[in-house]
Design a protein around this nucleic acid. Structure first.
Lengths: 108, 108
DNA sequence: TATTTAAGAAACCAATTGGTTGCAAATTTA
DNA sequence: TAAATTTGCAACCAATTGGTTTCTTAAATA
């Protein structure tokens, strides 16, 4: 299962979770109380967020606090900035884009 | 099928398509030549991108040019900016976030 | 110690995804 | 007009998704 940040934020519940734990670390139960799904469903979302390192688990007694890893969030920003830059200077840039896409596919 | 911009950019091929047509409008065939999938697979991606209005089709003889709708791209930016703002002033803001999430769910 | 609470893990399910092949419609070209 | 080209659409497929229920483990509490 290859996870990345973009897959992580594709789900609206996960985006809401990100917003919540951006403010303060929370436990799965605390998070679940803000949604209409079960605790287990939230846990699954947290697992996905953990797998792409958007979230870090922190044991505290029998509770587990999840906190946001801000670094990974910046990957989205980075992509958007790359896009904006491309858009702004988009004339006669096609060769550059093709090269960039090819190298992206290599490293993936 | 409820589509949104975040689902659209979840797929790496679709992100590449976005970058390509950001530079210049392209036909499905032209796009497909840059990937290792079939023309039909690319067409399916274009359909998804059309459904969430990230892309607009433009007939030109028997060819169909797809061009990027920059407005929709700004929705991603908007969300990110919202997040950044939240992150920067994240202390004692939990009530605000909860209210915002509730109203988001209502309108969805 | 017995009970309650918090959470992960596994098994299962229906719906969706990304992809395929085959076909039909429309436009261009010979 | 006949052939070739460009494309969308439908049917199909395996894998993944988001969710559920059930079970186990571990910590806190009575």
């Amino acid at each position: 299962m290859r996870r990345d940040v973009f897959q992580a934020i594709a789900d609206p519940t996960r985006r809401a979770i990100i917003m919540l734990i951006a403010v303060q670390a929370m436990t799965p139960n605390a998070l679940a109380s803000h949604f209409e799904t079960t605790r287990q469903a939230v846990s699954k979302h947290l697992k996905i967020l953990s797998e792409c390192e958007l979230v870090r688990a922190e044991n505290q007694g029998r509770e587990i606090y999840y906190r946001l890893e801000i670094d990974k969030m910046q990957e989205i920003d980075k992509w958007l900035e790359q896009f904006k830059k491309l858009w702004e200077s988009r004339f006669n840039q096609l060769d550059d884009v093709l090269a960039r896409i090819k190298s992206d596919q290599k490293q993936a």
